[in-house]
Design a protein around this nucleic acid. Structure first.
Lengths: 237, 237
DNA sequence: TTTCAACTCCCCCGAAATGGCGAGGCGTGC
DNA sequence: GCACGCCTCGCCATTTCGGGGGAGTTGAAA
């Protein structure tokens, strides 16, 4: 497999668009010998960009219903920095279990392994392999291939960024006035309680603004949100 | 206009006193092509400091009658943190309507757009442009120039603070390499644990860097430190 | 008219950050 | 030799933050 993988990484350079990347992902499926390979990038604005081997039907459904919001793989990996086996994610919610059942019905494997990747400007992507082996076989497989998976994940992401840059402009959603108010006070060093008092609103309401701003900015936490808002000029302190 | 604006921002550095600032504000009136430009700072003690193009008579009256207390622009902006068109303020009170009529009689424009600015120690200032265009024209004008207005507002305020204080901005102590590392990762959205892991140091050590950076930057908390470091260019995300 | 975004408020609880106490080694410069 | 800044580490209690539920109004847009 090593030889094929190296050849693949070289051939990857030829990809010029999403179709090229999708073809590359299909090749990867063969090389890795798994049921599915998925590259899935989610930008700050919530825009998605993917090259994968799932059925078109499942992809459409996933996008239409905005499943990224409940997908434990996306949500879980967004909080982590290490590759993770799907089994270690939190599938306990009702929505999550329903999502899992539906995914499997659409041909997604019972086993999965996802590598989170982060790029500049808060870019976040997932590189995933999925299969239907037994727990034991899958554990052995992932252990044996984790290095290759991480390597390929970064190559593919690099390529995707290169392709994406040609077209997209990652437009972050504008913040509402109150969100700017809240974020400004927080950036000025106020605690949530102080900021809420300054704005004459409840602390909870202030929290809602901060959370909403975090979401719009694709930020992991409040500090991140402030940093992104400042670097994009939405906030001037 | 861009060229003139940039030249203006450079020339602004030469202003040494209130007269210099007033001259700068008059130049701004020409550059922005509006009837009036006002920089108006109100400190915590109620002291006022202004450079503007209104008539002396109106200014005297405003100060003598302490109109800042009923001026919806001052009162409204004090509670907000984003630029605001005068039309969106609350002019419903009796005193406010009387104030408006009087202001217009003294040459203040019917349209206005004010940028609130906050500095250290509770300093609060307003940067305002005012004109007599139609609602439509004014909406188009403000939309087109809001970025420039905000930018200039902060430059002028910076200069005013410098003049008022008699000295240049407080020199923040430089951050050490490790402090920058730590703060950068935190600004990128990493938790302390993740950041520590990325730097291959203990979480406690990372905390020491953050605390040290907070201290050097005179920040109340981590988010504040990130904001200050970014606004002073120490951090580039 | 319905829909949607923005704005406001309430509860609970676990996880994370903060503040304060301590320690030692290394290198630069007076 | 000694001070000082930088880098590294541990433990404790307290505060703050983050995520999970809720609910309701308003005003603009479709």
């Amino acid at each position: 497999m090593q030889g094929r993988l190296e050849r693949f990484l070289q051939d990857l350079g030829a990809a010029r668009d999403l179709d090229g990347l999708t073809a590359a992902v299909r090749t990867l499926r063969d090389i890795f010998g798994v049921d599915h390979v998925v590259y899935h990038s989610v930008n700050a604005a919530g825009g998605q960009y993917a090259a994968l081997t799932y059925s078109d039907e499942w992809v459409r459904r996933y996008i239409d219903l905005d499943y990224a919001r409940i997908d434990p793989v996306v949500q879980g990996c967004f909080k982590r920095f290490n590759p993770v086996d799907w089994k270690r994610l939190d599938w306990s919610g009702k929505a999550q279990r329903a999502f899992l059942a539906e995914a499997i019905a659409h041909g997604v494997g019972r086993q999965g392994f996802s590598v989170p990747i982060r790029g500049p400007n808060g870019q976040f992507a997932l590189f995933t392999v999925s299969d239907n082996r037994s727990d034991e076989d899958w554990a052995a497989y992932t252990e044996a291939h984790v290095r290759d998976l991480i390597l390929v994940a970064h190559y593919v992401n690099q390529k995707a960024l290169e392709i994406e840059r040609g077209t997209d402009a990652v437009a972050m959603r504008a913040l509402s006035p109150r969100e700017i108010d809240a974020l400004t006070l927080i950036a000025m060093g106020y605690s949530r309680g102080q900021a809420a008092e300054s704005l004459s609103i409840s602390e909870h309401t202030l929290r809602v603004y901060i959370e909403s701003a975090r979401f719009k900015l694709g930020a992991m936490n409040t500090t991140h949100a402030v940093a992104r808002a400042m670097s994009s000029g939405m906030l001037v302190i």
